[in-house]
Design a protein around this nucleic acid. Structure first.
Length: 222
DNA sequence: CTTTGGATCGTCT
DNA sequence: GACGATCCAAAGG
């Protein structure tokens, strides 16, 4: 909820190295890292939920499963850059590209805990009622940080980028929550979703008959 | 608190 | 022409 005072963004350089590996290997390491944008002043969140997506022929749930297309091109590009896509006719979602060069892969940034720039986030998300409504979902996160198609391909590990993912040196959870991915019709069997246990800034999984199975409020429990 | 239906358009078949 | 890596308002317990 409130921003811990002791946290301070560090050197983004080490992150590029981290991301040069399989999405499923690196995804959980992004938990508790910082995602910062320059909407208004400085808007920052602590990453609380991520999902891994694989490359061609590796992952039926991935946009890159079939082949490279104009939309998913960023997934085949440099590690540490953003893959931002438009979905459901109205929402943007952002990924951090990873995997070795030439092999498509990405980590979807699904949720975050607001740290700084709360005023800008409230302004960017009029529908939000509580703090946990600001960034508790991939499209909410993008809206709160002002991320859209203009950020597709942006360098997330550049020292002075418009959007930056930063490792603040704080270790990610020793035992992160794990589950299957949200909202998929294919590839939903892989346990490639990770989240900070007990954090309320985590997306709610739909429990209805449309998809998925018995998911619950996994933010609870600890 | 939970559940349901609707919005809305780019992308790929 | 179909379907989303989703969110929100409304309605019911």
């Amino acid at each position: 909820m409130a921003a811990p005072d002791h946290r301070a963004p560090g050197d983004p350089g080490t992150l590029a190295t981290l991301l040069s590996d399989d999405p499923a290997e690196v995804a959980a390491h992004l938990l508790d890292g910082w995602l910062i944008s320059q909407l208004g002043e400085r808007v920052a969140v602590r990453i609380t939920e991520v999902e891994a997506y694989g490359g061609v022929g590796q992952d039926p749930g991935s946009h890159a499963h079939r082949r490279r297309t104009p939309r998913n091109a960023a997934m085949f590009g440099p590690v540490g850059h953003a893959y931002v896509y438009f979905t459901y006719g109205m929402h943007w979602c952002a990924n951090a590209v990873c995997a070795d060069s030439g092999i498509a892969g990405a980590v979807l940034l699904r949720a975050g805990a607001p740290l700084t720039g709360l005023d800008d986030m409230w302004a960017a998300r009029p529908a939000a009622r509580r703090v946990r409504d600001l960034c508790s979902g991939p499209a909410k996160l993008c809206q709160a940080l002002g991320l859209d198609g203009a950020f597709d391909g942006a360098d997330l590990v550049a020292r002075e980028g418009r959007v930056t993912v930063v490792d603040d040196g704080v270790e990610p959870p020793a035992e992160p929550g794990v589950s299957t991915r949200v909202g998929l019709s294919a590839g939903s069997d892989h346990p490639w979703r990770w989240y900070v246990p007990g954090d309320e800034n985590v997306s709610a999984r739909r429990t209805g008959t449309r998809r998925g199975r018995a998911g619950r409020a996994e933010a609870a429990g600890g």
